[in-house]
Design a protein around this nucleic acid. Structure first.
Lengths: 150, 150
DNA sequence: TATAAAAATACAGTAGGCTGTATATTTGAA
DNA sequence: TTCAAATATACAGCCTACTGTATTTTTATA
């Protein structure tokens, strides 16, 4: 299904939720159904989890400011699968090559993974530069990233 | 398998091929195997097709300069699945919302699809603005894009 | 043209992602 | 606390992408 359905649904959920008038998942389900997006409550439960939306008195709200107890490597694994073309080590630096325009999303995913080895990242159009304190930490990071590939 | 293997393998194929020393698919297979990427000749045949690499006297070469007879909507469908959060029509304009940093890649994919309705696109960080000559063409374009969603 | 090497593909199996159904758990109000 | 509503999840099915095997088709060379 290419998952376009899911991503688009997520966008619609964010939009509906930001309007602030969603009382519960059944409510959300009806709103989506009204625009031809028919899914079950179970699916919405999963969606809200993936989107990190938590319920408040006034509807749902982003939980992105809350502690990050989810595994941060999941979205990174996806991004790597989608974008990574090559890994090039260079002393304390790690260069990730992507197709044109792939660097920004991949860098965001790398940042999101919050690897302790990483001092910082810089992304251009098709290149992500990851800076680590030293060669050892780069090697460690590289192993962890490569482990996410297969 | 998350296809991480495939994208990364494609990157490695591009790298090996650019070195110019690949004689044939069996040769390429051995080179990849030497770096722990073990696949069959059949898979490489498919990879080279996807990468549009054609054989020349001196190895393989990009065929991207050749006429574009492939459907341009494939990568767009992927990009939409990956990035599209919302579609907002406005007279002769179509606004595509994406997650942060999603606009550039999505815009590139839209551009790549070469829709005749499109006069131009402008992308920021999370918004792609598509300009069409008039409302009719915007409606047409919108239908075509929405058809790629499911 | 005949032949062998190279490349392409038909076919089938595998694996993972997504979703619905049905059920369990949690939450909140009385 | 108790009950009903709301939410989460175990389970299974479906679908698609990917890949290997085995074979066919193409290419190039003698």
């Amino acid at each position: 299904m290419l998952s376009a359905g899911k991503t688009f649904r997520h966008g619609q959920i964010l939009r509906l939720v930001s309007d602030g008038s969603i009382a519960n998942q059944e409510d959300l389900r009806r709103r989506l159904a009204a625009q031809r997006l028919r899914v079950t409550q179970a699916t919405l439960s999963r969606d809200l989890q993936e989107l990190r939306l938590i319920k408040t008195q006034r509807g749902y709200k982003s939980a992105s400011t809350l502690p990050d107890d989810q595994s941060p490597e999941r979205p990174l694994a996806r991004a790597l699968g989608e974008f990574l073309l090559d890994i090039r080590p260079a002393e304390n630096l790690l260069v990730l090559k992507t197709p044109p325009s792939g660097a920004q999303p991949l860098a965001a995913a790398v940042d999101g993974a919050k690897f302790p080895e990483i001092a910082g990242t810089i992304a251009g159009d098709d290149t992500v530069l990851i800076i680590t304190p030293n060669k050892k930490s780069r090697e460690s990071l590289q192993r962890r990233i490569e482990a996410l590939l297969k």
